[in-house]
Design a protein around this nucleic acid. Structure first.
Lengths: 111, 111
DNA sequence: CTTTTTGGTAAGTATTCGCTTACGGTAAGT
DNA sequence: ACTTACCGTAAGCGAATACTTACCAAAAAG
């Protein structure tokens, strides 16, 4: 059941636009908190709180470097989320195909 | 910008556990609201509200059938979400590789 | 036509959430 | 040693959210 709560945490983390902005700014590489907060319309403590949410969800990893703390996207953190969406996608397609087959059979019962 | 707000709506919709439960129950095929509410720990109006959120996000499609309304997973609704995650994944891997390369070069500057 | 089933919407409420300012604590600069 | 930079946490507040009950509309059943 650790799987489900991870999905929960990751989706909740990604649902916030500020947190997605943080992830976007980390696409090019790790950044300290001050640099992150400089490019965002919210205060630095708010960024710290968002970073905590993202880290708890397993989407970020932290590497303290002297005075600063470098945050980076955790490679592999999005993997189970992708697996979940892929499964949803596959089942949706299968159900759609089944529904279409049933509709066709209902429209022309003989033949 | 329609792309970003769609991502926003879909992630917000998927972040709620009750809404994910609804999607899971729809994996096998379309269901009316009463059947959906029967297997969930919340009231039927709550399910209706969740169905509206999911529909607005483009994750469900509705087909009225007489008295009832059949909800089904919209095939293709999850596609842009998958695209977003794939992009995030790729950039994260690239940034990780770049960071590893830089670290290696910093550790052995000559050679 | 009356009754029942199905389902969306309105109003109200308690909880959660995202943000702010204020503070403490550690490392670097002077 | 003193000051400055960096960063996490606590407390408080307004907005958003998920739920409830109550109500109303439309299609099916009797």
């Amino acid at each position: 059941m650790t799987y489900a709560i991870a999905i929960e945490a990751q989706l909740t983390a990604l649902a916030d636009p500020t947190r997605r902005a943080i992830l976007d700014r980390l696409r090019d590489g790790p950044l300290p908190v001050c640099d992150l907060a400089a490019g965002l319309p919210v205060s630095r403590p708010a960024v710290s709180q968002h970073l905590r949410v993202l880290s708890d969800a397993g989407l970020l990893r932290v590497t303290p470097q002297g005075n600063r703390r470098l945050y980076a996207i955790a490679p592999g953190g999005v993997q189970e989320l992708r697996t979940y969406l892929d499964g949803l996608w596959d089942d949706a397609l299968a159900a759609f195909a089944a529904a279409a087959r049933q509709a066709a059979q209902q429209q022309m019962p003989r033949e």
